[in-house]
């Protein structure tokens, strides 16, 4: 589904991604962990097409297409979704209007009929229940004045409505209390299917108790320095990252 090869990226003249290679197949869940500032969000943003990062080398193939050649909205149309580490506030645009616009633009791009506001409301009602969000949130401006946890939940709501094929969750668990964490994890698990995949960026093992990964990767200094199964997450929880990021330990 996703094949990243030797990906390098810079912001300004600073090299942040220094050769990432990673393959994600349909049906898999990958966790990416790693110290602060190691480039996890950068990787996520580059995959989503953020114009602030310059890709300087490598390739990314998504479902057989050159992902890096696609506009951010085209990537979304093709089923890519990024839950932002820091969701953006958009005062003046209601959540409901925004989501319906996004939903319909994706449908349009796929040659499907647009849905009218009433039918969309039915879809929303069901998804709201899934993430245990109050209906009143729909009338509020996108993320404006939302608490940290509400913003994260709103990301999952968007994901639930847009039903992506490849979802990247960038620290969606940070700042969530234990109940919210379960809601978010349940949401992700309900959306898990044979034909879609998830990349979970996190610092905490606790999320991985709910969303059980097939693979765990450690990103440090812009490279994947170690990959393993779910037990790697436990090891990291116990030992931290130091044993991996020491120069001697970097073998990539």
């Amino acid at each position: 589904m996703l094949k990243i090869k030797d990906l390098t990226a810079t912001v300004g003249d600073k090299e942040i991604l220094r050769g990432i290679t990673l393959t994600v197949n349909a049906g898999e869940v990958h966790a990416i962990m790693g110290p602060n500032g190691s480039g996890k969000s950068t990787l996520a943003q580059v995959l989503a097409g953020h114009p602030g990062y310059a890709v300087t080398g490598g390739t990314v193939e998504y479902e057989g297409k050159d992902l890096l050649d696609m506009e951010p909205e085209e990537r979304a149309h093709a089923g890519l979704f990024l839950a932002f580490q820091y969701p953006v506030e958009i005062p003046g645009v209601s959540n409901a209007y925004f989501l319906r616009t996004a939903y319909n633009e994706i449908r349009k791009a796929r040659g499907a009929e647009e849905v009218d506001p009433m039918d969309f409301l039915d879809i929303m009602t069901e998804k709201l229940k899934m993430v245990e969000m109050d209906e009143s949130m729909l009338q509020r401006s996108v993320n404006a004045g939302f608490s940290g946890g509400e913003k994260k939940r709103n990301e999952i709501l968007q994901m639930a409505v847009l039903e992506p094929r490849l979802a990247i969750l960038d620290e969606t668990d940070s700042g969530l209390d234990i109940d919210a964490l379960r809601v978010v994890a349940d949401g992700v698990n309900k959306l898990r299917r044979e034909d879609n995949a998830t990349i979970v960026v996190t610092h905490y093992q606790r999320l991985l108790n709910y969303i059980v990964p097939d693979f765990v990767h450690v990103l440090a200094g812009g490279r994947i320095v170690k990959s393993g199964g779910k037990e790697l997450a436990h090891e990291l929880e116990a030992k931290g990252y130091d044993w991996l990021v020491e120069p001697a330990g970097v073998s990539a």
């Binding site: 958009i90 925004f98 996004a102 994706i106």
Partner: peptide, 22 residues
């Protein structure tokens, strides 16, 4: 804001229009 909208599938022109309205 424009990038956030685009990442949800909203086209560049629609995003611009919506943000102007907002």
């Amino acid at each position: 804001m424009a990038f956030y909208m685009k990442s949800r599938g909203v086209g560049a022109e629609t995003a611009r229009q919506l943000l102007t309205y907002a």
